[in-house]
Amino acid sequence: MKVYINGSIKEFKAKKISPEELIIQLNLNGKRFAIERNGEIISKNSFDEIYINDGDKIEIIGAVGGG
């Protein structure tokens, strides 16, 4: 399946993937982030209730320097 992550296409062998698995694959475990699927925030306590599917648009954000 193909998933859009932060504007770039990423391919996965699986047909669906949990948010947790996605975070591990992207080397982001242990980092502070928030994640959105198709415009809806996936809260951390609903990580095991939701799957990311083919064509989904994912945004993963963090904090950077700004004024």
Partner: peptide, 10 residues
């Protein structure tokens, strides 16, 4: 301290 919210650099 203010911080900006941006896409994480993957």
């Amino acid at each position: 301290v203010t911080v900006a919210i941006r896409r994480i650099n993957l």
